[in-house]
Nucleic acid binder design. Structure first.
Lengths: 244, 244
DNA sequence: CGTGGGATTGATTTTTGTCAAGTTCTGTGG
DNA sequence: CCACAGAACTTGACAAAAATCAATCCCACG
């Protein structure tokens, strides 16, 4: 739960309420769907452990991943207002996910305004991340795209307490990266090689090593602003931002 | 305001409250920013007239448009929780925009739950639209992307009461389309020609004519599901959806 | 009438995808 | 502990898509 407290200060009471609400998580295998396109949206999901993604399969059979959910991330709490899911959600690794009924969540948010604030804040950040992805897909080259995604995931993993040094577990195959960034696995492979040869980063066997953080941030043109993390010591250096 | 009532039933009282809150809109010229990246987020904007977009300028000087706001659309009501805007918002045409102070908006939503529901619903749809754009940019060809965007905008314009027949005002230059879809203006031009020659649609002098709706929807692989409009007579035909 | 921004078109280059053939890795069952 | 099957990764050769460069052309507007 240190993810939510990353945005908003919660009282110890609120924290224990949250802990209680997520006390009995459900386990999912890698590649198991939490919910599928067309299903009736139900409870709010909160990821406690593992990596999860939102994705959509197109008629042609291709897949596009639209978001990653890391431990501490929650799925849209209002999704229940929709009659039907317009995309699917799947575990990428074995995962523990708290499944909180709509009604419970609403009651909790009514009673504990700090939790409500934290949830709204989290949703805002999710939305900002969607916009950042659109920017990447529209206006960044393939090298920049990969570098940018890695910067984002590094910071987010760090915020979820998954990172200690400059190396961290990134359980994303090149196929998953391709489906995320709108490229082919073959091309992902070549670009990863390029980044490796440039001495910026290395992805091997599910583990990512950031060799030259400054270089990587420069390549990505990364500006962490959109993640709206609360000020603290910078985790990695940041390229000058591009305000016009 | 018929946009919000498109999602949720509002009481006549709620409708008049909304009308009152938006009674004194501000006017913006085309190309004028409502708010810029780096600014402190302030009030909630509600577009009453004209076309508005969210966009971001990258360090290289390129622009990416991330969303269009049509009459009836509102900007994220919680944006005020962020210390600073991570993108800009600009009028594409002369526009009338209601500028509602945060506090007023919150009071209104506390008192009139129907309005709160409608706002949440609208935000959910905005988010679903961002996801749909990611899918387009990642996994659709340039022809499909343009066709898909046009289908979306046609339905949304229709929902905002801007359309009567199969022709409607689409005040987007090829340059704006390029910055929206992540392509170059030159390529947009060629694809538009292709769509024209295919007898699907024609865009000329700010006016879009859908010549063959079925064809256009087929080309786009369009499934309106993500817009979550309430059932009513279908506005244009829909291709079979791609649930797996 | 110019004039400037947008639209259009052709020629060429760059980027990315496609196809195809290995190679490495990982986990399973004997 | 080893053999093997399947999946992921890697690489090269080639094709397709899109960007870039460079002229015009066409209007709307002052």
């Amino acid at each position: 739960m240190n993810k939510l407290t990353g945005f908003v200060d919660l009282t110890s009471n609120e924290i224990s309420v949250l802990r209680e609400a997520t006390a009995f998580p459900r386990r999912f295998d890698a590649r198991q769907d939490l919910i599928r396109e067309g299903d009736t949206p139900g409870p709010v999901f909160v990821v406690l452990d593992g990596w999860v993604c939102r994705y959509k399969i197109l008629p042609a059979g291709t897949r596009q991943i639209m978001a990653f959910l890391l431990p501490g991330d929650a799925c849209d709490l209002h999704m229940g207002m929709f009659p039907e899911m317009d995309h699917s959600i799947q575990a990428l690794t074995p995962a523990r996910v708290a499944v909180i009924p709509q009604a419970d969540m609403h009651r909790m948010m009514e009673k504990h305004r700090g939790i409500a604030r934290a949830m709204y804040m989290a949703q805002l950040v999710d939305e900002a991340t969607l916009r950042a992805w659109i920017v990447s897909m529209g206006r960044r080259s393939s090298v920049e795209r990969i570098a940018h995604l890695v910067c984002e995931l590094y910071l987010r993993a760090h915020g979820s307490g998954l990172v200690t040094g400059s190396e961290f577990a990134l359980p994303l195959s090149q196929i998953i990266l391709a489906d995320t960034l709108g490229m082919t696995p073959v091309h992902i492979n070549r670009v990863l090689k390029e980044l490796r040869l440039a001495g910026a980063m290395k992805l091997a066997r599910g583990s990512l090593t950031i060799i030259d953080p400054i270089r990587l941030v420069q390549i990505a043109g990364f500006d962490e602003n959109y993640l709206h993390r609360r000020l603290g010591q910078p985790v990695i250096a940041t390229a000058e931002s591009g305000h016009d």
